[in-house]
Computed example of a mutant assay.
Amino acid sequence: MKPYYWESQHGNFGDDLNLWLWDFLLPGFRDVHDDILLVGVGTVLNRALLPDGVRKLVIGSGFGYGSLPDMRDAAEWDLRCVRGPLTAEKIGLAPERGIVDPAVMVADMPEFRNLPKLYKRSFIPHWESAIAGMWPVTCGTVGMHYIDPRGEAKSVIREIAQSEFIVAESMHGAILADAFRVPWVAVTTSDSINSFKWNDWAKTVGVEYRPRHVPVSSRTEAMIKGARFWGMGFEAQTVPEAANLRSADGEVIVAAREPRQTFLRSAAKQVLAAPSTLALWQATRAEPQLSSDSRLAERKERFQDALAAVRRAYF
């Protein structure tokens, strides 16, 4: 089998963990049925993403973007379970088939157990926010550890596990925090954050998605998201990897990865990011969430049952 995942050109740990998670959950899966695509972690049940004419084994994937593929052909689709009840309803499965996001199983991997706590409070933004936001500086201002979701997946996950409190715009930031029993608070910087997929997962572990609003931290970030920044609205733009974003008059505003800046320009941007800084600080004072031990354990047990059924059918 071959694992399928959505590959961001910028990097996104919540998708990239598919590269090694399934070797832990289904050892030897790469050596059997090389004609089958294993569709796992991610919001990838999308007609535009998954290839036709290939048999697909779906274990814990979710819907949330675009349109659903036609999954009626049992010869092409083996739907074992999906991320949550909202995805199950969308594709016509019984609600109990929406078990949980498979990423929760990362916490069972030996290399992530019993890690020391190194960070009092950490913030992990959505990868789109990380591209051009002032978040590393903003976090430093309020004494938070910044976790870049574009980093190497295992390193990102260790930083989550080694935190005592997580503020998450990244859904998998919250999922992993919950799996490692780290209290978390959800935030959002724009309407582009997909609440459907958050609620899909949240319902499986008995928590609520109630994000606190945090303003975008820079003009470039507002341009990427089509958000407002200091009263000015922007049309959403796409920023390729390592490309510069330009204003309407052609001025280069900022590179996608942090550019060299003068001290005065950097200081000015910090002042403009003050509303974001305040809102992020307030998020660290909010009441955090955490699913119950029993609910999480029950969902993981049901997911293990689904994996056992896959082993019996394919190994």
Rank of each mutant, 00 (worst) to 15 (best):
T220N: 05
A279H: 04
Q282A: 07
Y5W: 15
A222I: 07
W6R: 13
I253G: 01
P215Q: 02
V271W: 11
R311F: 07
R72C: 11
I91C: 07
G98C: 08
S291A: 14
A255N: 15
K2A: 12
V137S: 14
V106T: 06
D23E: 13
R72L: 12
K300I: 12
W198C: 02
D34Y: 03
P95C: 11
T204L: 03
G233R: 14
N18M: 08
S61H: 02
M71E: 09
T284Y: 01
M223C: 03
V54M: 08
G11N: 09
A255V: 07
F165M: 05
G66N: 08
I193S: 03
H33G: 03
P136L: 05
W77R: 06
E159S: 11
K154S: 15
V106N: 00
R83L: 05
D249H: 10
P240R: 02
G140F: 01
V252T: 15
A107L: 10
M134S: 11
L264W: 11
I59N: 00
M232D: 13
A236P: 08
P3F: 14
A243D: 13
I99A: 05
G233V: 10
G42L: 05
G151L: 06
N199E: 15
P149Y: 02
L17V: 12
A153G: 08
A179E: 03
T141V: 15
N244D: 14
C81R: 00
R97L: 14
A103S: 07
L176E: 00
Q304T: 15
L264E: 12
M105T: 05
L26K: 04
L245F: 06
R246H: 15
A274W: 15
R260S: 11
I99D: 01
V239P: 00
V82H: 01
V44W: 00
R55K: 15
I253H: 06
D16L: 06
M232T: 14
R299N: 06
L45N: 04
Q237K: 14
E258C: 12
Q237R: 13
R55G: 02
I91N: 06
K90D: 09
R295P: 03
A75W: 08
I59F: 05
L280K: 00
A74N: 13
V205P: 00
S122K: 05
G98Y: 06
K2Q: 15
P27I: 10
W22G: 04
W127S: 01
G206N: 02
A88M: 06
L86R: 10
M109C: 09
S122Q: 07
A255E: 14
L57F: 08
Q289V: 10
V187E: 00
S291D: 05
L50R: 04
S155L: 14
V207C: 04
L290Q: 08
A309K: 12
